[in-house]
């Protein structure tokens, strides 16, 4: 078995991963209380930490690191499709609605400027 040596070390690895997950949970709670300039930055930080945690779970608890690559490919393609869905829906909403100031004002402004440039060029 290829993963035999990894299997023997598994309990220790899992404990280390669990501690990292718990530390990241504390960090995300603390970070939520700090203002990083705009709400948008806060969301990005929170989601980055969440993604770090999810990656740890996927790589170690779900063994993606040691598995055949096909399983990781399936997972990543699924995430990529979700990414496309999110991006295009967000893009439409940002370019469509007069968004209330705050959370996404900069992004909306950016999208509207790009769209007007594309349209005036054509």
């Amino acid at each position: 078995m290829k993963a035999h040596s990894a299997a023997e070390r598994a309990p220790r690895t899992y404990l280390a991963v669990l501690s990292a997950l718990l530390v990241l949970t504390v960090i995300t709670v603390v970070a939520a209380g700090v203002h990083f300039g705009s709400a948008f930055v806060n969301v990005v930080i929170a989601l980055t930490i969440a993604s770090a945690k999810a990656s740890l779970v996927a790589l170690y608890f779900m063994h993606l690191r040691h598995e055949r690559p096909i399983n990781a490919i399936i997972f990543v393609v699924g995430l990529a499709m979700l990414g496309i869905f999110l991006m295009l829906c967000f893009l439409d909403t940002l370019a469509r609605e007069p968004v209330e100031p705050g959370l996404t004002a900069q992004l909306a402004d950016w999208a509207v400027r790009i769209s007007s440039r594309i349209l005036s060029a054509s």
């Binding site: 295009l88 893009l91 439409d92 370019a95 469509r96 999208a111 769209s115 594309i118 349209l119």
Partner: peptide, 11 residues
């Protein structure tokens, strides 16, 4: 359907 012009152009 009220989709934004930008999204329509891309699609």
């Amino acid at each position: 359907s009220g989709q934004s012009v930008l999204a329509s152009a891309i699609f």
